[in-house]
C-alpha cells in the first residue's frame, strides 16, 4: 500500500471523499414503539463522510436511532434528514447492518451478498463476480456456496458485512456489527471497513459497546443516555501514529 493510500485508510480529519457520503441529521427527534418513547427530543448531526460511533447503556435507543436513519422507523415527532431531505422510507443509499442474523436463510452466502445488486438489476454474471470478490475480502471465499445454517454466527456476521458493503451505500448504519467475532477476526474486519471507506467513502454511524473499537474507528464518539446525547468526544487525529507505533497495522494486514 502506498503512503498516500495508507494515509487515506488511517487518516481521520478531514474525512476523505466527503462528497459521496450522505449527511445525516436528527432534529428534536422522538422515536418509539407503540406509544412508548425510546428516544426523546434528540438532536444529532453526522457530517458527510464522518465515522460517528455511538455508545451508551442498553436500551438507550441506539438501535432505534439507526432504524430511524435507515428509514425503517418513522419519527413520532421531529425530523430525520439525509442530505437535508426528510427521510421518507428505506433506501439502498442507507444500508443497515443488523446486530442479529439478518441473512435470508434460503440463500447461499453468495446469493445473500448479491442481494442489493440483484435488486438493482445488475446482470447475473457481474453480480456473482462482485459477490465472490466481497466474500473473499471478508475471508469467506471458500464458503460462497454454503447456506447460512452451515455457517457459524461469526461467519454469518461477516457475510452480512460483505452484503452491506457490496451494496455500495452512501451511509452505512452498523448495529454492533462485530459483536459476535473473535478478537482477531474483529480486528481484520475493522481494518477492512476502513480500507473500503478509503476506496468508497461513506458516512458511517457505528453502534458498539466496545470503547477500544469506538476510539479506533470513530472520528467522533457520542455517548447516548436516557436524556439524549450525554457526552461527545472528537477522537484526536494521532490515531494512525499510535497504531503505527504499536505495529498494529502490520498485524492487522496479516490477519486479513
Amino acid at each position: 500500500m502506498s503512503g498516500e493510500a495508507q494515509r487515506r485508510v488511517w487518516g481521520v480529519d478531514p474525512p476523505q471523499g466527503a462528497g459521496r457520503g450522505l449527511s445525516l441529521r436528527a432534529e428534536r427527534v422522538t422515536l418509539g414503539y407503540g406509544g412508548r418513547a425510546v428516544v426523546r427530543g434528540l438532536d444529532l448531526d453526522v457530517a458527510a463522510g464522518e465515522i460517528l460511533v455511538v455508545v451508551g447503556p442498553s436500551g438507550c435507543g441506539k438501535s432505534t436511532l439507526l432504524r430511524a436513519f435507515a428509514g425503517l422507523l418513522p419519527a413520532v415527532s421531529g425530523r430525520v434528514l439525509a442530505d437535508g431531505e426528510p427521510v421518507g422510507g428505506a433506501s439502498a443509499d442507507r444500508a443497515l447492518m443488523f446486530q442479529d442474523d439478518a441473512l435470508l436463510p434460503w440463500r447461499t452466502a453468495r446469493r445473500n451478498v448479491e442481494l442489493a445488486l440483484a435488486l438493482r438489476g445488475v446482470p447475473r454474471r457481474e453480480r456473482r463476480a462482485a459477490a465472490e470478490r466481497w466474500l473473499g475480502r471478508v475471508g469467506l471465499g471458500d464458503d460462497a456456496g454454503r447456506l447460512p445454517r452451515e455457517l457459524s454466527g461469526g461467519m454469518r456476521q461477516r457475510v452480512q458485512l460483505a452484503r452491506t458493503l457490496a451494496a455500495g451505500p452512501r451511509a452505512i448504519l452498523m448495529d454492533e456489527p462485530f459483536g459476535a467475532l473473535d478478537a482477531q477476526t474483529r480486528a481484520s474486519m475493522q481494518r477492512l471497513l476502513l480500507d473500503v471507506l478509503a476506496d468508497a467513502p461513506a458516512t458511517v454511524v457505528f453502534v458498539t459497546h466496545d470503547v477500544d473499537e469506538a476510539l479506533l474507528l470513530g472520528h467522533r464518539v457520542v455517548v447516548l443516555g436516557p436524556a439524549g446525547v450525554a457526552a461527545e468526544f472528537a477522537v484526536p487525529a494521532s490515531r494512525d501514529a499510535v497504531l503505527a507505533a504499536l505495529g498494529a497495522g502490520d498485524q492487522l494486514k496479516e490477519a486479513v
Binding site: A70, G71, L72, S91, A92, A95, L115
Partner: peptide, 21 residues
C-alpha cells in the same frame, strides 16, 4: 421482521419484499 428490513435497506420495494422475502 429483520428479513424484510434487510431487503428494504438494500433497495427492495414492497413488491420485491413480497417476492424475495
Amino acid at each position: 421482521v429483520v428479513w424484510e428490513d434487510a431487503v428494504r435497506t438494500l433497495g427492495g420495494g414492497r413488491w420485491r419484499v413480497l417476492v424475495r422475502v
